[in-house]
């Protein structure tokens, strides 16, 4: 009689534990997918491109990129090199293998650099300066 009760208990406990493990793996998978480097690269590059499109010369825009900083540091990428702007194309690179670029149509000169504190540490904020192109000023 004791063995029978013991069997039922072990079976049920094992059943619950396996189910919990299964659901935990699924939830972990979901979280990993939603915070992956590739997805963030796409989000940030499009966000930055649209931000530059709607900007006007002499503007300075600060963008909170803490999530990107965490992922870049995890993937051994210098946060200074995470965002680069070449011509009218924004490139966001948060891992060694990937990178995402998106173009903007606003013909302005844009510079991007990360903000640092007094200890020269990155604050997770990126600064974008928008200026009129030199040829336009002439």
């Amino acid at each position: 009689m004791e063995n029978k009760k013991g069997d039922i208990l072990i079976e049920n406990v094992l059943f619950i534990v396996l189910n919990v493990i299964f659901i935990s793996i699924l939830i972990l998978f979901l979280f990993k997918q939603s915070s992956g480097a590739a997805l963030l690269e796409q989000t940030y590059s499009k966000q930055i491109a649209l931000m530059i499109d709607s900007a006007k010369p002499a503007m300075e825009i600060k963008l909170n990129m803490e999530k990107a900083q965490k992922i870049a540091e995890k993937n051994k990428i210098d946060f200074k090199e995470a965002v680069s702007i070449t011509g009218n194309v924004v490139n966001v690179k948060l891992s060694q293998k990937t990178g995402y670029e998106y173009s903007f149509f606003n013909n302005v000169e844009t510079k991007a650099f990360p903000e640092t504190n007094s200890k020269n540490e990155y604050t997770g904020i990126y600064i974008f300066t928008i200026n009129q192109k030199n040829e336009k000023i002439k």
Binding site: G87, N88, V89, E101, Y102, S103, F105, N106, N107, V108, K136
Partner: peptide, 8 residues
């Protein structure tokens, strides 16, 4: 209008 249409 300060536009540039060249893309990646």
């Amino acid at each position: 209008c300060n536009l540039i249409f060249e893309t990646e």
